[in-house]
Each structure stands twice: as structure tokens, then as C-alpha cells.
Design a protein around this nucleic acid. Structure first.
Lengths: 161, 161
DNA sequence: TGTCATTATTTTAAGTCTAAATAAAAGCCG
DNA sequence: CGGCTTTTATTTAGACTTAAAATAATGACA
């Protein structure tokens, strides 16, 4: 084996190792943050991340969202959304409304109480997230945001399920 | 309100929004990748991500790992590791050994069969990860890796639980 | 030696998640 | 119109997850 071949092979192996290391670090960062948010939501508001997430989606869409739309935005199955919506409905934070145009559909909306409860949590939650990322300068955050954007685009590319 | 104050306030609000957007994008990328790995592991090897993760940790530590060490590395609770180890042990992929130095401890090791099964999966898995990140150039991967390193360091900083 | 705090693992209860099966409604098309 | 496929939500079974409690063994120390 020539020196050139060895170099190529080494570089390739390093690139492969690089992707794995990058993935593990990405996963670690996400796990660290979700872990912190999860425990703080529990301690401060006696709620959970998926519940918070569902309310956050509805907050952004006052016109309401169907179960399928919610599941896409939350990146979970519709069966999962059904269960979380059941809880929040029982707690009076969301309301199921039937879509007159399509009787299969259920439209979920925040109740006034849900809007009130969520907005109190959202303010605090935003502060946590700012805190988690304040180790990076605004420029670094921009760069990270852009790189993740390229990654996301690649991951969502066609023939890439 | 003066123009300067308004500009500062606007910039601050944008920074806040920036952190939230960054966090949501980070979470999306991680979810997209874990989702792909999860479904491919199921389709190709009829196994799950936590099972794969446990085997991967053991592969890197031929001397074996205690349940507590495993839970730290996998970023899950020890109770969780117990259940996954039970399954893998029943399938003959790992073996529980008692630590002669500390009878409270259980040391988990790969069996020869476990090593064999894992190494087949690991090769394919590595290819997937390389594929997921090949939308980024090696330089971009380096930058992303470094930025996530800074983020991780900040997240692990003291008085930041 | 006996007690007590600590450490390591397991167990338990409740919540979250997926995939697959079900049921109902809508849309398509001959 | 009538049958076929698709879409939408729910239900179900099983796996994963956490937090907290229960077990069990260790180590320190009066």
C-alpha cells in the first residue's frame, strides 16, 4: 500500500469517525437541554414537555389545529396526540371542536384558561432557553442556526426517508 | 421612548427569539435523525435504539460496565437500564457478572454472540450517520462540532443543573 | 460491634412513544 | 350511483422513560 492510499484511507476513516462524533455530540446537547426543561417544567409547573409542546403549538395557531397537524408539528404519532389531548382536555386547558367541513376531523383549541396557564409558563420557559444558549455569542448562534438549517434541509431531502 | 431604547429592545427581543428558534431547530434535527435511525434499526435488524445504544456502550468497554456507568453514558435512569439489560440478557447478547470487589454492583458485558450481532449492525449504522451529515462539508462539520462543544460545555457548567 | 449514612440496583406507578389495527368519513372513478 | 382507496382519529399492545420507593450491600465511626 502506497503512502497516498494510506492517507486517503486514513482521511476517510477520520471523516467517518467525524460524522459519528458529531452525531453523538448533537444528541448529547439535545438530551441535556430536554432533560433540564423536563425537570424544570415538573418542578415549577407540575407539567411535562409533551403537554407544554402541545399547548405551545396551539398558542401559535389560535384558529385551532387538527390532530394530524398537531402530530406533524410535534413530530409524534397521532395516537400519541390523542392521549395528551385527552389529559389537557380533562384539565380544561384545550377543547375539542368538530370541523363542520369534515366530520372525521377534530380541531383542538386553547381554552381561555389554557391560554392563561400557557402564557405564564412560556415566559419562564423562554428565559431558560436563552440561558442554555448564552454560552454562545449572537454570531455563533447565527452560525449554528444556519448549519442546522442546512442539516435539516438535507435530512428532509427527497428519497431520504 | 427614544430610538436608541427601541433599537436595544428590538435587538434584545430578536436575540430571545433567536435562542428559541435555534433550540427548536436543534430539536428538529435530532428528532429527524433519531426517527430515521429508529425505523431503520427496526426494519433492518428488528431492534430498537436504546438496545443498540446499550450494546454500543459495551462494545467500547470490553472490560464491562456497571449499571450506573451505563445509565450515565446512555443518559437515562438506572431503572431504565435494568429493563433493557433484562431483554438483551434474555436474548443472550449481554451477560450480568457480579463484581467480586463490590457485591452491590453488577457488571454488564457483551457475550460473543452480542459482539457478533452488534458489529454487523454498527457497520450499517455508521453508514447511515455518514449519510445524514453528508449535506455538510468536512469544514462545516468541524464548525458544527466545535459550536456544539461550546454549547455542551456551557450546559455542563457548574451551578447550571 | 452496632448504627447510620451512602451507594448500587431493582421495582413500581404513571406518562410517553411507536406501530398496527380499527372505524368513520371523504374522495375518486367507472 | 356504488365500490375502492385514502384520509382522519382513536384504540390497542408493547416498549421506553422518569421519578420515587424499596432492597441490598458498603463504609465510616462512635
Amino acid at each position: 500500500m502506497t503512502t497516498l492510499e494510506k492517507d486517503l484511507e486514513t482521511r476517510l476513516a477520520e471523516d467517518h469517525h467525524q460524522a459519528i462524533k458529531l452525531w453523538l455530540r448533537l444528541l448529547t446537547c439535545t438530551n441535556l437541554i430536554t432533560g433540564k426543561i423536563r425537570s424544570r417544567l415538573r418542578e415549577n409547573f407540575a407539567t411535562t414537555l409533551p403537554r407544554f409542546d402541545l399547548l405551545a403549538q396551539l398558542e401559535r395557531h389560535p384558529e385551532g389545529l387538527r390532530m394530524g397537524e398537531l402530530s406533524q408539528r410535534m413530530m409524534v404519532t397521532t395516537g400519541n396526540v390523542t392521549g395528551i389531548a385527552d389529559q389537557l382536555e380533562a384539565e380544561g386547558l384545550v377543547r375539542r371542536e368538530s370541523d363542520p367541513k369534515d366530520r372525521r376531523s377534530v380541531v383542538l383549541r386553547l381554552t381561555p384558561k389554557g391560554r392563561e396557564v400557557f402564557s405564564a409558563m412560556a415566559k419562564v420557559h423562554e428565559g431558560w432557553v436563552i440561558e442554555f444558549f448564552e454560552g454562545l455569542s449572537p454570531e455563533e448562534k447565527d452560525t449554528l442556526y444556519a448549519l442546522l438549517g442546512r442539516l435539516k434541509q438535507h435530512l428532509n431531502g427527497r428519497r431520504n426517508p
